[in-house]
């Protein structure tokens, strides 16, 4: 049984910490540990090398809890790295590679979801919320300009002073009348 055990995800992937992954791993195996460095992926130009790095950093390792292809040691991540490498070496563009992966694994592989109707909510949603908040703030500021002045009231002043002055268990407890 040694070869079986060696590949057993329960034993080798304990790095995929004791999260619900444990539950999931009982169901799903994905092979063992693989390379940690990207040394084996060599390109002709440093630009391509950088492009490769940036690309795999933006892709999600599906079996990991939340790691990119660049950072994951799972074997499936290595397979996908190999595939991306092969496609890049074959001269395919980033978009072609992304399309290839999305067709097979879905939008879930992309850490950087593209702008399209289904992601409008993601890209614009927060700004709509922030816009509403900004509108409220501006209105508040404008309203404040016209508001009647209401400085800190006399009794509040007194209590603040009491805090500054020496008065342990201050008399303010008795002068709490506003």
């Amino acid at each position: 049984m040694p070869p079986l055990l060696k590949k057993d995800p329960l034993i080798n992937m304990s790095r995929v910490i004791k999260s619900l992954a444990l539950g999931a791993l009982l169901l799903i195996g994905s092979g063992s540990v693989s390379a940690y460095t990207l040394e084996e992926f060599q390109f002709d130009s440093p630009e391509q090398q950088t492009e490769f790095r940036e690309l795999i950093a933006k892709l999600r390792c599906l079996v990991c809890q939340n790691e990119s292809l660049a950072g994951s040691q799972a074997e499936l991540a290595q397979d996908l790295r190999n595939e991306v490498y092969r496609m890049m070496r074959a001269g395919q563009s980033q978009d072609e590679i992304l399309d290839f992966l999305v067709e097979r694994y879905g939008d879930f592989v992309l850490y950087d979801p593209p702008l399209k109707p289904s992601t409008y909510l993601l890209w614009f949603g927060p700004f709509v919320l922030i816009g509403i908040a900004g509108f409220v703030v501006v209105r508040t500021i404008l309203a404040k300009k016209r508001a009647a002045d209401e400085p800190i009231s006399a009794s509040e002043q007194e209590r603040l002073k009491a805090l500054l002055d020496n008065s342990p268990d201050s008399p303010s407890s008795s002068s709490r009348s506003t």
Partner: peptide, 16 residues
């Protein structure tokens, strides 16, 4: 053995 076809099927674990 090398996940050649599994990759195209979008396999990410076993069993599926």
């Amino acid at each position: 053995p090398d996940n050649k076809v599994g990759l195209h099927w979008g396999v990410y674990g076993a069993p599926e």
